[in-house]
């Protein structure tokens, strides 16, 4: 991923959740339609694309999209 915008696009396209760059710092709990089960699909998609594993425990700690990016961006 080249930047957090890529992750936002991914969430929009893969999960059908209407997020924008302005949502990056919003708590995941406040994003309409978000559910923790979506993490599984995001990990599946990102790992499939990069061929590198992401740290699941770190992802579970993430509170917002920026936090997710901090883990997935390095994957």
């Amino acid at each position: 991923m080249n930047g957090i915008d890529d992750l936002i696009t991914l969430i929009r396209d893969e999960l059908g959740i209407a997020v924008t760059a302005g949502d990056a710092g919003r708590s995941l709990d406040e994003i309409p339609g978000w559910d923790s089960v979506h993490l599984l699909w995001l990990v599946t998609v990102v790992e499939q694309r990069t061929g590198r594993p992401a740290s699941f425990p770190d992802l579970l700690q993430a509170r917002d999209i920026e936090g997710l990016y901090a883990v997935l961006g390095g994957a």
């Binding site: 991923m1 080249n2 890529d6 396209d13 893969e14 059908g16 998609v45 499939q48 694309r49 990069t50």
Partner: peptide, 23 residues
């Protein structure tokens, strides 16, 4: 990862027709 990877091959996103309709 490089942006080209994001759209390459298997795992390139939901089926185009369906995605377009959704978007």
């Amino acid at each position: 990862m490089a942006s080209s990877e994001a759209t390459a091959g298997h795992g390139a996103g939901p089926p185009a027709g369906l995605s377009e309709l959704f978007r």
